[in-house]
Write a protein that binds this DNA or RNA. Structure first.
Length: 714
RNA sequence: GCUAGCGUAGCUCAAUCGGCAGAGCAGUUGAUUUGUAAUCAACAGGUUGUGGGUUCAAGUCCCUCCGCUAGCUCCA
């Protein structure tokens, strides 16, 4: 006897073994048809799975209307795609085929190199499978049984996964559909026919189990929906995202460019892009001052020793531009030391170094070695090489601003009366990002952070941290980015990449979490393994107007850099004894490059008036009124607007079209009538013709809009 | 860095099977003097990313390097 409690409070009793589908059938035939799965005591199970024989369960039927449904559908579609691929190609090894936010993928190991040309073929095969509408059938096997079974099928990746990843499980489930059978947790939709519309999107490489030291598989991406309409909407959304691509708009509107001859990932801000950046800088600068920050400027390179002290070098050696070396051989020796152990043996390293010490090398640049060099062991020689290296002057393009701000802190004794000390700098940093990571302005090798470091006492941490979060909230909201979530990044206790004691980490994480909880931040949640290597952080993940997430601002707590092992920072407390301050790193925008890249896409290039590179275009109806047009332009310039005049011998329609396409917020059209009355005909880019008004009135209208940083969108 | 795809005029793109590198927009010049999203005409614009190879002949086929795109890995 099983008692099934339904969400509406009713319950049904069954004396025989039933499945969710039977429960649905009991309620009504239409519901039975619509039922895809069920949530039983919080667990999602397939509609065809047997429920327990005894006791009671709470059960909610899942239909296409429920949020889980799309995931089920896509997971099933991934199976169907894999089935199609296996039908069309030989020797396909299955890896994983999960759902992702916008669809699903399946990883394959196979001889044939998949390309987009294969998509129509695969899609046709998938359509055939969907049309056949076969059921997904679940079966369970004991672990060893399953391993033997998969071995017989020749699915060695699945065997490996079962042995490595699922070694805890005593039984595992499979899903069968026709000739296709796959190790899978499930559940699935009951039948293939539930899939209303699907499309393959792209193919790319992906490492087996996400490990870059393992083999690379082929990952086929697709998406699926219940209806064709939903799929079309989704594809339209993708088109919209493409239309907003900041790389395309940035080129069209001449905001920025990247010249491969200068270097990939190095951004040139063109005049129009620079305006946007400078306006943002001015906005932030004002906020910094009113919030008690002190702007500073520091060098963009620094001695490597500084970054050795901070711990950034050589921890991030692979993602930094190699240091500039004053000694002609230092760069080469440095490379050798970095290659050590990575295919370069110690003996080889020593042999290569010794080439620099022979008589053939001019004495002036010959590295000094001890007289007894020949009698030294490899180990001793290596120590000597390292010692020689440490003596060399090497300068790193700074990958971070903090060591320089720390240097300012250390430049004189500090008293508790000076704290909190808030040092701010729009600091340019360089990081050697992997070539495959570079992307327009959003992932670059040189960028400027809206950075600041706060040095404070332990007691001030909570207030300062809150102040940082508030400032970030404020500036994002002012830009119309009010849809965001906050991610608390804590350390992954299993990893050894973090510096500092567990005790320090616990203290920092607890302090951070407490402040965030008090602040009522939207969608706050903790993610382990997302911390910086020196401390926990709060990241702002902003959703733009078409729903895409962007990781932007960050506030990070740091008990490490001030520590004895690092920079050994101190201040003299009220008790006349030295104490260690705490550091907070924070950047509300993150970097100007990334932030402006995001803004371009968010606004689709149509910036609000205060940010628009060109705010007003004055255009004359005929060249006969050019003189009046120029006087209007002059008045606008004098009023502080960014304005250009269009005095070409073109028709007014053509001038308007050019300004509309240039996304210029306002057009002031002047002809004979306006010239006579001292007016301008104001045309709003969004609303169109607003009619003629006195120049002073038009200027006041725009001034208000700039002052209030009004955001109007279309 | 890895896998795959792609590099043709400032931009967007065309060029059949390997057979004379082309169009629109932008630009320049001239005409036109215009009232709310494109006036007309002429001109100019190229070492087809780089270096090599195959061929009577290469934008097209092969190799190298560089860059870009998607994804993976990374992200202080």
């Amino acid at each position: 006897m099983l008692k099934v409690n339904l969400p509406d409070g009713k319950s049904l009793d069954f004396s025989h073994r039933v499945r969710a589908a039977d429960v649905a059938a009991q309620i009504g035939p239409r519901l039975a048809k619509a039922t895809l799965a069920a949530e039983v005591d919080g667990q999602l199970v397939g509609a065809a799975e047997l429920l327990p024989a005894e006791g009671q369960v709470s059960l909610r039927l899942v239909t296409a209307k429920d949020p889980e449904a799309l995931g089920l559908l896509r997971h099933s579609c991934a199976h169907i795609m894999a089935r199609a691929v296996m039908r069309l190609f030989k020797g396909v090894q299955l890896a994983f085929g999960p759902t992702v936010a916008e669809g699903f993928y399946y990883d394959f190991d196979m001889e044939h190199k998949l390309s987009e040309e294969d998509f129509p073929k695969i899609e046709a095969e998938m359509a055939r499978i969907v049309k056949e509408d076969e059921a997904f059938e679940r079966l369970e096997l004991g672990r060893q049984e399953a391993i033997d079974f998969l071995r017989d099928l020749g699915q060695s990746l699945k065997v490996e996964h079962l042995q490595e990843g699922l070694s805890e499980e005593s039984t595992v489930s499979f899903y069968r559909q026709g000739e296709f059978i796959d190790l899978c947790r499930g559940p699935h939709v009951p039948r293939a026919g539930a899939i209303g519309a699907f499309k393959l999107l792209s193919v790319a490489g992906a490492y087996w189990k996400g490990d870059s030291s393992r083999q690379q598989l082929q990952r086929l991406y697709g998406t699926a929906f219940f209806t064709k309409q939903q799929l079309d909407d989704h594809l339209r959304q993708l088109e919209e995202a493409k239309r907003r691509d900041h790389r395309v708009i940035g080129k069209q509107l001449e905001l920025f460019f990247i010249d491969p001859d200068v270097g990939s990932g190095l951004v040139f801000w063109l005049p129009k892009g620079a305006v946007v950046r400078h306006e943002l800088e001015g906005f932030l600068y004002g906020e910094l001052i009113s919030r008690g920050y002190q702007p500073v400027n520091t060098p963009v390179i620094g001695n490597v020793r500084l970054y050795q002290t901070s711990g950034h070098y050589p921890y991030y050696a692979d993602s930094q531009f190699p240091p500039l070396c004053l000694h002609p051989f230092a760069g080469a020796v440095q490379e050798l030391l970095l290659e050590r152990g990575k295919g370069l043996s110690d003996d080889q390293l020593v042999a290569l170094f010794e080439k620099y010490t022979t008589d053939e090398v001019p004495a002036r640049v010959r590295p000094a070695i001890p007289a007894n060099w020949g009698s030294l062991s490899t180990e001793k020689k290596l120590a000597e090489i390292q010692a020689w290296m440490d003596e060399q002057d090497r300068y790193l393009l700074r990958p971070m601003n903090c060591p320089h701000h720390v240097t300012i802190y250390k430049s004189k004794p500090r008293s508790y009366r000076e704290l909190p000390l808030r040092l701010a700098e729009f600091g340019t940093v360089h990081r050697f990002e992997q070539s495959g990571e570079l992307n327009g302005m959003t992932r670059v090798r040189g960028f400027t952070q809206d950075d600041a470091h706060i040095f404070c006492t332990e007691e001030q941490v909570a207030d300062e941290f809150r102040g940082c979060l508030e400032m970030t909230k404020f500036v994002l909201t002012k830009l119309g980015l009010s849809d965001y979530r906050v991610r608390l990044g804590f350390r992954d206790p299993a990893s050894d990449k973090y510096v500092g004691s567990a005790e320090t980490w616990n203290r920092a994480e607890a302090a951070l979490e407490q402040v965030c909880r008090q602040m009522d931040l939207p969608d706050l949640h903790v993610e382990h393994g997302e911390a910086a290597f020196y401390g926990p952080k709060a990241d702002f993940i902003v959703t733009d107007c078409i729903g895409r997430p962007w990781q932007l601002g960050t506030v990070q707590l740091d008990y490490n850099l001030p520590s004895r092992e690092r920079f050994n920072l101190e201040y003299i407390g009220a008790d006349n004894a030295p104490h260690q301050p705490v550091m907070i790193h924070r950047a509300p925008f993150g970097s100007f490059e990334r932030f402006v890249g995001m803004l371009i896409e968010h606004f689709a290039g149509a910036f609000p008036l205060w940010l628009a590179p060109e705010q007003v275009r004055v255009m004359v109806v005929s060249q006969k009124v050019e003189e009046y047009g120029r006087s209007v332009e002059r008045q606008l310039i004098d009023a502080g607007f960014r304005v250009t005049g269009d005095y070409r011998a073109e028709k007014i329609g053509a001038k308007i079209r050019d300004a509309q396409l240039g996304l210029i917020p306002y057009m002031f059209v002047v002809g004979g009538r306006e010239a006579e009355e001292g007016k301008v005909a104001v045309r709003d880019r969004i609303a169109g013709d607003l009619g003629a008004m006195p120049i002073a009135e038009a200027i006041e209208r725009l001034r208000t809009e700039v002052r209030e940083k009004t955001i109007r969108s279309k």
